[in-house]
Design a protein around this nucleic acid. Structure first.
Length: 770
DNA sequence: TACTAAGCTCTTTTT
DNA sequence: GAGCTTAGTA
């Protein structure tokens, strides 16, 4: 190809990759199988643009995770140099937040708008449900938020939601006719608080582009080249925004793999790929099918599973790599044993093959699974790092300080105000806050407006002084914003609110760690203030908006050599020489919530595909016969995926049962009652989907015993030595009973939980006659 | 109003 | 097991 010698980096690409990288003009779709060098193509594509004289400032590259964005920026920097800094590269949410900050006034938001995370959103929904006097058992925050989120992702505003008969019918059918009202109130309240939730960042971007032609024009010309990674994971709103932005230049390139679409719960739809072909009939499609990452065994095994899906674009992923080892399948008796096995195995591999800790990764379906794995790794002194899970920024002490800072920047931020107004305690209790909330909704103003004018509301008279002190304090912090940097303001807030002092005086292990966390946060703010590698403003408001979109996976790893633990979702885009997939059990992976419909099951299968294709050299699949879940020890059955994998690729552990496992005919019941998730009851799996019952060794069924009636009267003559059973903690032996009458307390040694002290009046116990 | 223990409810995945 | 609510007590 002409001129290629000028760009030595192109030597790193194969023919298909090179074509895709060189085609920088016009609409392009790159269908990239797992491990096919997608990031490499994108990197060199951008490098090539810059080499061709395109100003990086005119390039917009959207990714789904900060990790992916940072990774790509780093790679581009090594090819292009410092110029890469002015690239518009980041997640949808962070790029749009940056733009909306500039354009906020057009939409009626303050430039310092707060970003509500899902906890804030849920808490707001809870308050609204309460205020509307609706049953919070029916209108569960999670469920309502999902519903609102889905609507927003499909560009259905609360007006339209109210007017749509379809929606009304389906909400009524599911027994929740008032969702429209909640949606209304939620939107109004967020707006009143000067806050956007995650979905609003997308939705408002869309509004900006549709309602303000000058803004549309500006960004259409600014983003001459647009690239979207993981296109299969975009939702309708994101699709529409991209379409708008690309409408003038049509230099748009999307990269995706339908087999790795694992975010449909977030509104992602395969429809976007089909729409893309329809919208740009003259588009060029490049298929990257050669896998450079994994052994033949792994590539083929992954293929043998994903082939079972009906919804897919057929493609043949292949590799010229070695055949490699077979995939090991390991059975353990309990989840703890599973952890021990994996830890042991990593230990041995590391020794025998001189591998690094960072060569290993353990993947799982749900965050809760990390606990038993962690324990085992810790016992074997294997350093590990958990990605995702409870994020640093979700810890209480961190949220507290951040809430103060958010409130200083945006006084109207209701969720932050509610969080800190009485922390540390300053005598503003529940009753007072309830009154404040009532006044605010009567007056249609924010909580801050009420708090800072507490004197004018007689009903608040007793607390007025305290409320005013609080608002004066917050205001005084706000005046600092002008003359001091983010770090100085944060320090001042942490000190004057006595937050730092309170934490520092708690000398328990947890207390010290909380204090250290806050100090770490403050250091983070300092770093941010001093960071000059990014071309952005550096005040507190920007910092807050930045970190609102950060997850724990985004913290710098440094040079650490640790085993990586994460959910499969978090593992997307990563690769490791040796991967363990833990918890391959029916109802866990595939997840219970997803075994109802074919679509859901196919998404689980794609998830499995993603997990398997993270492995380069070795893959170990693991499952346990029993697992502690939902507060109970439950029996587990091996995942159907173990049977779906072409058995020729598997190496069965001598003591494992895959293929000849006896299964119970009964599915474990879903926890809790009531209809299933979105829109009614899920169908039970079809008979044919169920793996067949064949001969083999029976697994003991540890079905939890249901104890119908715990009657407190039964235990009036409880005494030391009695064997009892508690509704929650199970069986145990009474060690000591103290106190008289109703106020007696018992110290009980529970078999499962160790020693506990219970107030007998409340304890739901019954005697065991062994 | 603040604090505590007990009880209840949920338990997928992420920005 | 975690996070939240409720009820009782100080």
């Amino acid at each position: 190809m002409e001129g290629v010698e000028e760009y030595p980096y192109l030597k790193d690409l194969n023919a298909a990759q090179r074509e895709a990288a060189l085609q920088i003009d016009g609409p392009v779709m790159i269908v990239a199988g797992a491990g096919s060098g997608k990031t490499r193509v994108l990197t060199y594509r951008i490098a090539h643009m810059v080499a061709q004289g395109v100003d990086p400032y005119n390039i917009l590259a959207l990714t789904f995770t900060n990790k992916a964005a940072r990774e790509m920026r780093k790679r581009i920097e090594t090819v292009v140099g410092l110029e890469a800094r002015s690239l518009w590269m980041g997640t949808f949410h962070s790029i749009f937040a940056r733009i909306l900050r500039v354009e906020a006034d057009k939409l009626g938001y303050p430039p310092n708008f707060s970003i509500y995370d899902s906890d804030d959103s849920k808490s707001l929904i809870r308050t609204i449900v309460k205020e509307l006097k609706l049953d919070d058992k029916v209108y569960k925050a999670n469920m309502v938020l999902n519903r609102i989120s889905t609507a927003k992702n499909n560009l259905i505003l609360s007006d339209a939601y109210n007017k749509s008969d379809d929606i009304k019918a389906s909400d009524t059918a599911s027994g929740r006719p008032e969702i429209a009202k909640i949606y209304d109130a939620y939107t109004a309240r967020c707006f009143r608080a000067g806050a956007m939730d995650f979905d609003d960042l997308l939705l408002n971007m869309y509004k900006l582009l549709t309602k303000f032609p000058d803004a549309l024009n500006k960004y259409q010309h600014m983003f001459r080249y647009i690239m979207v990674d993981e296109y299969q994971d975009t939702n309708h709103c994101q699709y529409m925004i991209i379409k708008k932005l690309a409408a003038v230049n049509e230099n748009i390139c999307v990269v995706g793999d339908d087999a790795q679409s694992i975010y449909s719960f977030r509104g992602a739809t395969i429809q976007n790929i089909l729409n893309f072909e329809r919208d740009y009939p003259d588009l060029k499609i490049y298929k990257l099918e050669q896998n450079y990452r994994s052994t033949q065994t792994i590539v083929n095994a992954a293929g043998s599973v994903i082939d079972k899906n009906k919804d897919q674009i057929k493609k043949k992923v292949w590799t010229s790599n070695d055949l490699g080892d077979r995939i090991r399948v390991v059975r353990s008796v309990t989840d703890n044993e599973e952890g021990q096995f994996i830890a042991q195995s990593i230990f041995e591999e590391r020794m025998q093959k001189q591998m690094q800790n960072s060569d290993f990764s353990i993947l799982y379906r749900t965050n809760a699974q990390s606990r038993s794995l962690e324990e085992a790794l810790r016992k074997m002194n294997i350093p590990y790092r958990i990605y995702g899970g409870q994020s640093f920024y979700q810890r209480k002490e961190i949220k507290d300080l951040l809430a103060y800072l958010r409130l200083v920047v945006n006084h109207h931020d209701e969720e932050s105000l509610k969080r800190v107004i009485n922390y540390p305690t300053r005598g503003i209790g529940k009753t007072t806050m309830e009154r404040v909330i009532v006044i605010a909704s009567e007056q249609g103003c924010s909580l801050w407006d009420v708090v800072s004018n507490a004197g004018s509301f007689p009903i608040l008279s007793s607390a007025a002084g305290k409320l005013l002190n609080f608002s004066t304090m917050i205001r005084s912090f706000a005046t600092l914003l002008q003359k001091k940097d983010a770090y100085e303001v944060a320090i001042e807030v942490a000190k004057s609110t006595t937050l730092l002092h309170t934490l520092n005086s708690d000398k328990t292990v947890e207390g010290i760690s909380r204090y250290e966390n806050v100090v770490e946060l403050l250091n983070g703010i300092k770093e941010f203030s001093e960071d000059d590698t990014r071309d952005i403003e550096k005040n507190l408001a920007v910092y807050l908006q930045d970190i609102a979109l950060l997850t724990d996976a985004d913290q710098e790893d440094g040079d650490d050599n640790k085993v990586a633990l994460m959910t499969i979702h978090a593992a997307k885009g990563l690769e490791f020489p040796h991967v363990y997939i833990a918890g391959l059990e029916e109802n866990l992976f595939p997840n219970q919530m997803s075994t109802g419909s074919r679509k859901d099951l196919e998404e689980e299968r794609r998830l499995f595909y993603v997990a398997v294709t993270r492995a380069e050299k070795k893959l170990t699949l693991s499952y346990a016969n029993t697992r502690f879940r939902f507060g109970q020890l439950l029996p587990c059955e091996p995942s159907r995926f173990l049977q779906e994998i072409d058995q020729q690729y598997l190496q069965l552990d001598p003591n494992n049962f895959v293929g000849n496992q006896v299964r119970s005919n009964e599915r474990p019941t879903r926890y809790g009652k009531g209809p299933g998730m979105q829109g009614g009851v899920r169908r039970p799996p079809q008979k044919s989907q169920r793996p067949q019952v064949t001969r083999g060794k029976a697994v003991p069924q540890h079905r939890p015993q249901v104890i119908p009636d715990f009657v407190p009267e039964d235990i009036t003559d409880l005494k030391a030595g009695d064997r009892i059973e508690h509704q929650r903690f199970g069986k145990g032996q009474v060690e000591q009973v103290e106190g008289m009458g109703e106020h007696r307390k018992a110290t009980i040694m529970f078999d499962e939980y160790g020693k506990k002290q219970l107030v007998l009046r409340f304890a739901k116990l019954r005697f065991l006659k062994d």
